[in-house]
Design a protein around this nucleic acid. Sequence first.
DNA 1: CGATATTTTGATCGGTCTCAATTTGAGTGG
DNA 2: CCACTCAAATTGAGACCGATCAAAATATCG
Lengths: 241, 241
Amino acid sequence: MKSCAGCHEKCLLCETLLCSCHPTHQLRPLQGSIHKKTYKPKEILFHEGDPANRLFLLSSGYVKLSTALPDGRNQGLRLGMARQFIGFEGLNETCYSYTAEAVTPVEVCSLPYKDMLRIMEQNAHLAIAVVDALNRELQRSNAVIRNLGLLNSTERVASLLLSLLPPPVHCQDIPLPLTRTDMAEMLGLTLETVSRVLSRMSREDIIHLPPNGRQMRIIDRARLAALTGGATAPLAYAVGA
Amino acid sequence: MKSCAGCHEKCLLCETLLCSCHPTHQLRPLQGSIHKKTYKPKEILFHEGDPANRLFLLSSGYVKLSTALPDGRNQGLRLGMARQFIGFEGLNETCYSYTAEAVTPVEVCSLPYKDMLRIMEQNAHLAIAVVDALNRELQRSNAVIRNLGLLNSTERVASLLLSLLPPPVHCQDIPLPLTRTDMAEMLGLTLETVSRVLSRMSREDIIHLPPNGRQMRIIDRARLAALTGGATAPLAYAVGA
DNA sequence: CGATATTTTGATCGGTCTCAATTTGAGTGG
DNA sequence: CCACTCAAATTGAGACCGATCAAAATATCG
């Protein structure tokens, strides 16, 4: 974990904060407390229940956020993507309320809550930018709730796949490797059900499943969209800043 | 809809804003744009898709927030309770992303987004208070996602009932009338399933169902809690500020 | 009291889970 | 390069939970 003091052009957190801090010098004293770190796939950023005092901003890669019941049942909440905050909910708590695990190589910046609070106190524009970001997350959460409450297994899988596609309309490849278990945990299904749905979609030439098993390609976006049950809103996993 | 200029002691929005506005006079010019309004049960505050330009703060009563798919399937998102914001997510959108309907007599204050933004710009403490509130909502949403993804019908109903009980531990009565349909829509179940689960709980003397059918009383909180599957976190519907 | 909405309850159906076996792929060391 | 091991994915058979359809019972309200 090294300080971020000298990497303005590469550190998203610095960048974000600097952008919204008109008197730039306000930020200087903080740069020592902003840290940049990389994680390999399957590495844990933090566990649910860990004492929380830092917030993270994802520079690149994907992070799986999940929460569990005492009996071990595990539920995926969302995928953290570039330019999103992670662990912000702990701001006025003592513990993280979910687990964050890298699913790809990941770069994050982090800084202590108390420093973030200090910056927001001094800079209302930044605080408003944060309000904005949280509002967007809330909308994503609402879409997830809708989908879990209303969609059947096919609709859920279709929505997930579409929401994982990056914005360019012509893009076909899903840019991250999710196991059947990962998908099942996000969708409130079992891995077998996910596998069956994907197999059927593949059989019907809607998607292509490489022998690999994880990476996937969308062949027929229109037919896939027709399977979502009209859950139009990009299911909240994707959508960049 | 009357102005709120003269009701500092009764208007939660004024109160909230005044509390966090150190130079109180900053707020004065806004009071003309803060409006107080009351709604009767079943009245709609706003519909999903309506053009959005005001945010609401609930002074008293309960508001059901829900979102629908194009084919009509409807999903409850949460119950808005006293001291919570409603319609905040539209802050940088053009439309409300869900429908808000009173389930009890309701008092709300509202003001235009642009005024809220102006106050936040001038007052970072208020903006931080908003960040706080949104973080709490996000945690509630995460609990809802967890419960929809992991819990069976009995566990869902039990969690809902417990989450509807106001804080005092000895309190037994659920303070708002929800129809079976309301509950089903919040829980991702059918009204028949909800009815069956409630009937069984009543038969086993865990709850009491008045002939009324809507108001309910918790008889054995411990046994009800044992049915939640360890979904400890108050299911995010309740929990006051 | 009659009309309507809501709830309860029953019978059946179907989608998803569960359990199990098999297949496939990735990594390792000979 | 080929066995071997281990993890992940696929596929099948059966069970079960909740949905669906239908009817009866109970409230609410004019």
